[in-house]
Design a protein around this nucleic acid. Structure first.
Length: 454
RNA sequence: GAGAUUGUAGCUCAGCAUGGUUAGAGCGUCAGAUUGUGGCUCUGAAGGCCGGGGGUUCGAGUCCCCUCAUUCUCCCCA
């Protein structure tokens, strides 16, 4: 058979993995300096845990796992009935009761709900694992991709938002990736839909607004009209979307637009708190963007979105506050706030802007040539010593001609070749050749062991 | 779910509008030049049911239909 990958999935070779791990380890170390603890959850969850949490569209995109044991004859009759349910677009436990996780937030909520007795709130966890979506893949979109989330459960304090913004700042400063952190408040969006007398259409309004920089003002207005927003409402939204200037000017403009709305005021106060306590550093600024909406409709407070500067790309991170993290699982009054990094997109952006450090690879430093059994025995002893000194080395596995061994070293980017031939075996010496310089020297075993590689 | 795109050697692709002996190139792989010191060069070799199925035709990689897969756009999302 012809080997192939499932649609929307990828293999990661060494070159890619060095770079991906650089991103992961940067994010991870920042998470930990902010006091977040690691958590991992299973790739699969019970279907019940996931269904109904992501909206109708989301439910369709959940990868379901077929139950085992359907071939048993006593299960045939019920399975056929259950399958009719599936054909009708419903889920049936008789056919599938497990599914691949769709994001990290719901498994986190499930974990908090299951362990609320043991966890001391507020609970701050980070999680970096793949998620799966049965979406149609396209540029920058995959069916298997990684999310890196940091969330806080059980705290209403706005200091969490300040800290999370700090995490964004520190990660992108460490990656030397210029970004803008754009913020808005879901409360302000709710106030806006109230101001249009269409509080019930909040979701439709946010989805339309969210498309602004993609499809332009006119088409957003058209979509709002189709959704049933009347002319006066559309006028308010239009002037709302055209608010510009500095952060302070934007806030002033918003106050004028909806002067008497309590919800809007509350949203503005939260934003002010965040702006007041956030510390600018490394040129990473917080920027109010009232057109920011974020599709996920469980957000209730401040929302974040990260865009890279100097390149037109989708968002590379986002997050926000959600009032009711665990009520799905019967546990009330545990609020949540969190952020997420889109590693796959950050990778693409760093690659496009050529921002990866040049020396990420941690490959072999010394290749021992294989020139025969007795020589290999000596090489093997020397490797043992080098490895104790954390020097990465390997023996070429086959007794091949030098040509081949050199090519192996060059291809793997190995900087040194250690050659022990019959002559060196006798004199207890090693030929150490620098493949980058092209020079070589015959040195004693002692000098070889103590040589400064790197 | 809707629309478009591309499937030819391990990889990147040419050939197809105008059907015609044995389907090509570059890179890579392997062997030799080179009796154990690389990257260069030269020589040679292996490697293809031209995505699959059906049709038109004396004849199909090339034309038609179906199907599968790919990539991209929309919807939605990271």
């Amino acid at each position: 058979m012809k080997p192939s990958l499932p649609q929307g999935t990828r293999d990661f070779g060494a070159d890619i993995l060095y770079k991906r791990n650089y991103i992961f380890s940067t994010i991870k170390s920042v998470f930990e300096t902010y006091g977040f603890e690691p958590l991992e959850t299973p790739a699969m969850e019970n279907l019940d845990t996931l269904m109904g949490k992501y909206g109708d569209e989301g439910d369709k995109l959940i990868f379901k796992i077929l139950n085992n044991g359907l071939q048993l004859s006593e299960k045939h009759a019920p399975a056929r009935i259950d399958f009719e349910e599936v054909l009708a677009g419903k889920n049936s436990k008789g056919i599938t009761e497990r599914a691949l996780r769709y994001d990290l937030t719901i498994p986190f909520a499930r974990y908090v709900a299951m362990n609320q007795g043991q966890l001391s709130l507020p609970y701050k966890r980070y999680q970096m694992q793949p998620v799966w979506r049965a979406d149609r893949p396209q540029k920058g979109r995959y069916r298997e991709f990684y999310q890196c989330d940091a969330d806080v459960a059980g705290s209403h304090s706005l200091w969490n938002e300040v800290e999370l913004a700090g995490i964004y700042r520190d990660v992108f400063a460490a990656l030397h990736l210029p970004v803008s952190i754009r913020i808005n408040s879901r409360k302000i969006l709710a106030a806006l839909s109230m101001a249009c007398n269409n509080a019930d259409l909040l979701t439709d309004i946010t989805i339309a607004i969210d498309k602004l920089d993609k499809i332009g003002l006119e088409k957003v207005m058209l979509e709002l009209e189709l959704k049933g927003i009347d002319a006066s409402g559309r006028n308010i939204i239009q002037s709302y979307l055209q608010i510009g200037g500095s952060n302070r000017e934007k806030m002033e403009a918003l106050r004028l637009l909806m002067p008497s709305n309590e919800l809007g005021k509350a949203g503005l106060e939260e934003i002010e708190f965040l702006l007041e306590h956030y510390t600018d550093e490394a040129g990473v600024l917080l920027e109010i963007d009232f057109t920011l909406a974020r599709g996920l409709n469980y957000y209730t407070g401040i929302i974040f979105e990260i865009k890279a500067q100097g390149i037109a790309f989708g968002s590379i991170g986002g997050g926000g506050r959600y009032a009711d993290l665990t009520s799905f699982f019967g546990v009330k009054d545990i609020p949540g706030v969190g952020i997420s990094f889109g590693v796959d997109r950050i990778y693409d952006v760093l690659e496009a802007l050529n921002l990866f450090p040049p020396t990420l690879g941690k490959g072999t430093e010394v290749l021992f040539f294989n020139t025969g059994l007795e020589e290999c025995k000596m090489a093997y002893k020397l490797m043992h010593i080098l490895r104790k000194k954390k020097i990465r080395c390997e023996l070429f596995a086959e007794t091949s001609k030098f040509d081949k061994q050199f090519k192996y070293a060059v291809k793997k980017g190995i900087p040194y070749a250690a050659i022990i031939g019959a002559e060196e075996l006798k004199t207890n010496q090693v030929v150490l050749k620098s493949l980058t310089m092209g020079t070589q020297q015959v040195i004693s075993v002692d000098a070889f062991i103590n040589y400064k590689y790197s």
